[in-house]
Amino acid sequence: MEIVIALAVGVMFGSGIWLILRPRTFQFIAGMMLMSYAVNIFIFAMGRLWVDMPPITPAAGVDPAQYADPLPQGLVLTAIVIGFATTALYLVMMIGARGLTGSDHVDGEEPR
């Protein structure tokens, strides 16, 4: 499992880097989305991998070792929603810049 998660994170992050280094705004936004998946899973994995142990405690006085780490989950949940908001913001900047400059290059003008 560990190797699968590590590879998944690596592939998504690498694809993301490739895309954010490209010159078109759409490529950039796609890259940011892939990178945010990678980073979210990375942060999530810091709480280690737990199968079938969701942090839902049915009764008081449980053994914490029997449950997944809720802290990274809480942080990543926040990150997912904030990620959505920043994607929206970036998208609006993307179409706004395109309308204003007539170009979808990240610098607002075609390279000479």
């Binding site: 560990e2 190797i3 998660i5 590590a6 590879l7 994170v9 690596g10 592939v11 998504m12 992050f13 690498g14 694809s15 880097i17 490739w18 280094l21 990678a38 990375f42 994995a45 810091m46 280690r48 991998l49």
Partner: peptide, 17 residues
């Protein structure tokens, strides 16, 4: 750069896990 970044983050993830 992309491959290096991906490999680095994958290695880090694996090392932590």
């Amino acid at each position: 750069v992309a491959v290096a970044g991906g490999v680095a983050l994958a290695a880090l993830t694996y090392a932590v896990l």
